[in-house]
Design a protein around this nucleic acid. Structure first.
Lengths: 103, 103
DNA sequence: TACTCTTATCGTAAAGATACGATAAAGCCC
DNA sequence: GGGCTTTATCGTATCTTTACGATAAGAGTA
């Protein structure tokens, strides 16, 4: 029965919810903070910082990337990640205007 | 095996993730917007606005309440909900400082 | 070429979230 | 009291998320 009725809501609300969803795990919050601090990181550095297995971290990175918040580029045998500043700013704006609507 | 390793992360990151989690469903986003617009609503009004069954809406309201973002008070046979402005402002501050850390 | 390092993906198990019908509980009106 | 309205909770089905081991795939190195 429960086939997630997400599509029945307004596009804006869906988008905001999707953004909130990627921030809804402390690992992803920590990844963003780490990337912000070091500007860019190879995957292994992030794995070292988090209390999770490499496969799990890779999965979290994938989610951040699929929402566009981070970019990843291959660097030899490594993967180098960084925050997509522009996408981040758009997300911040979305959240900001949501909160303004609430106030 | 997967027993959610949330507790292994920093308290601040956990808290932010928990906040993001309640915003991670469009129904809860819509509820907050509705409450903001009308200032306060009885449960039934919210049910009328959302494409979900009463039981489901009640569940979403419970989650918003348990995080403290909304307050509910019994009004005769009805339940009257409103946004907890103070709690909301604290959440906004948390998010703001998180984004500042990212920039 | 063989070997090592690094990371993504697959498969899968467990936990959590979502959704709703049914029902309980509490107040109102007659 | 009896019936109606309103909402919370219970039980349950299903879908989604989280987590990790195993493995594949690609790049560098001896």
């Amino acid at each position: 029965m429960p086939a997630t009725k997400t599509e029945l809501f307004k596009t804006k609300d869906q988008r905001l919810a999707a953004l909130a969803r990627v921030l809804s795990h402390p690992a992803r919050v920590a990844i963003l903070k780490t990337l912000a601090k070091k500007n860019e990181c190879i995957c292994g550095e992030i794995v070292d910082v988090l209390p999770l297995a490499q496969a799990t971290v890779s999965q979290h990175l994938k989610e951040l990337k699929s929402l566009g918040l981070i970019k990843g580029q291959i660097d030899g045998p490594r993967s180098c990640y960084c925050i997509d500043r522009q996408a981040l700013n758009e997300c911040i704006d979305d959240l900001r205007s949501f909160f303004e609507e609430l106030q």
